[in-house]
Simulated scan of single mutants.
Amino acid sequence: MKYETIGSPISYGGLQLKNRIIFAPTSMGLTQDEYFEKIRRIAAGGCAMIIIGDVPVLKGGFGPSLYTRKGFAFYRRLAEIVHKEDCRICAQLHQSDSNLAAMIRYLPGVLTHKISMQDLRVLLNQQVGPYITGMPVRKIRKITEGFGKAAQLARQAGFDMVQVHGDRMCGSFSSSVFNHRTDEYGGSAEHRARFAVECVQAVHRSVPDLPIDYKLAVRQENPHYGNAGVLVEELSVFVPLLEQAGVTSFHVTLANHSNLEDTIPGAKHPQFSAEGCFLPFCDAVRQYTSLPICGVGGLTSPDFVEKQLADGRIDCAAMCRQLIADPDWVNKTLHGQTGDIHRCLRCNRKCLGGIQQHQGVHCIYEGGNRT
C-alpha cells in the first residue's frame, strides 16, 4: 500500500508541515539529557511537528519557565534540536487549575505516604470546581493576558506555533461540572467559553502572525468520561467562538480530570479500546469548522491512519505512545518498511506506568525486549 496522504505536505493552520504526522504533547518525566535525546529521535524519525506539552503560561508555573534565563534556554535548545531534524515545533501553553493551597494542605499526607499519588489526583480534582467558581475576575484577566506574553516568549525561543491547552484551566472554565459561576464567565455555554476565548485573543493580539492550535477537550456522556471540556452538543457554540478569536486549527481529544487510563486508554479499555478511539469527537467538531483538525487516540496502523487522512476525516494524525515505541514510524512507513515497525501494544506498562511510578516515560521495546 502507498501512503501518499500520510507523506503529503499540508498547511496546518497556516504552518507548512512536510507530512501529516504530529507528536502529541506528552509529559515525559525524564532527565534533561534523556528528554532532549528522546525528542531528537522522534524528530529524526520523520514526523512533521512535535508539540511540547505543559509550557507554563505564568512565571510561577510548574516545569521549565519561559520567563527565566534557564527555562528560556531549555526551550530554545529544544527548538534547535527539532529544527535541525527538519521538523516543526509547537509550544502547548498550559495553565494548571490545581488549587495551590489545597496541594499544600495535602502535602504532609503525601510525604508520609498516607495519600497515594492516585488519591492526590482525586482530591485535587475535587477542589477544581470551588477554585474555578471562586476565582476573582482580576486573577482571571491576569491569567488570560499571560497567554499572550507566553506566546511572545515562545516565538522568541524558536517555536513555530502555539497550542492553547483547552483542558486544565480552559477546560474547567468550559465545563458545567466545575464552573458554577454566575458572572460573565459562567452559566451559559457562551459564558463558559469566555475564558478560553480570551486566552486565544490574547495570543492573537500579542503575536498576530503566529498560528494557534487549540486542544479541544470533549466530554462524553452516556457513558460519562471526562469532567472538564465541552459536551458534544455545546460544540456548535464553542467551535465558532474559538475560531473567531483566532484559532487556526483544532487538536481534538477526550476531556481530562478523570482516570489517566481513560485519556490514555489501553487496549482493554471498556469504551476506548479501538484504534482511533477519539476520532468520533473529530467527526462532531468537523460539522462546525473548515479549519484543519488533528485526531488522536491509539493510532498505530499505517493503513488505518492513511484511510482516515485520505477520506478527509482528519487532516493530521497525532501520536504519542506509537512514536515512543518506534520513533521511526514515519520514515519506515514512507519507505515501505511497515513490517519493521515496532507497533505500540497499548499495554501502558512502561509509558503511563512509568509516569505513575515516577520512572519517566519508557517503552517495553527499549533494550530490544518485551519484558
Rank of each mutant, 00 (worst) to 15 (best):
3 Y>S: 03
5 T>L: 00
8 S>F: 08
11 S>M: 14
13 G>A: 12
18 K>T: 14
19 N>W: 06
20 R>N: 12
22 I>W: 06
27 S>E: 10
35 Y>F: 15
39 I>D: 06
42 I>G: 05
49 M>V: 04
49 M>K: 13
53 G>T: 04
54 D>I: 02
57 V>R: 00
57 V>H: 02
60 G>Q: 05
60 G>M: 05
65 S>T: 05
68 T>M: 02
73 A>K: 15
74 F>A: 03
75 Y>D: 05
79 A>D: 10
80 E>P: 04
81 I>G: 01
84 K>C: 02
84 K>R: 15
88 R>N: 11
89 I>D: 10
90 C>E: 15
99 N>D: 09
100 L>V: 14
100 L>H: 09
107 L>V: 13
115 I>L: 09
116 S>I: 14
126 Q>G: 14
133 T>W: 00
136 P>R: 00
136 P>E: 09
136 P>I: 03
140 I>A: 00
143 I>K: 00
143 I>D: 07
152 Q>D: 04
155 R>H: 11
157 A>C: 06
159 F>L: 02
160 D>G: 02
171 G>A: 08
172 S>T: 15
178 F>I: 08
184 E>H: 08
186 G>P: 13
199 C>K: 01
208 P>V: 09
216 L>R: 04
219 R>W: 07
220 Q>N: 06
222 N>Q: 10
222 N>F: 11
223 P>H: 06
227 N>K: 02
230 V>C: 04
231 L>N: 09
239 V>G: 00
245 A>D: 04
246 G>W: 04
248 T>P: 00
253 T>I: 09
265 P>C: 09
271 Q>P: 00
274 A>F: 06
275 E>S: 02
280 P>H: 06
286 R>V: 11
293 I>W: 03
295 G>H: 11
295 G>E: 07
298 G>Y: 02
299 L>C: 07
301 S>C: 10
302 P>G: 01
303 D>M: 02
304 F>M: 08
305 V>W: 01
310 A>E: 15
311 D>T: 09
312 G>A: 04
314 I>K: 00
317 A>T: 07
327 P>R: 00
331 N>H: 10
334 L>I: 12
335 H>E: 14
335 H>S: 15
337 Q>K: 11
341 I>P: 04
343 R>C: 11
343 R>D: 02
346 R>P: 09
347 C>S: 09
351 C>T: 12
352 L>S: 03
358 H>A: 11
361 V>F: 13
365 Y>G: 01
366 E>A: 10
367 G>Q: 07
367 G>W: 15
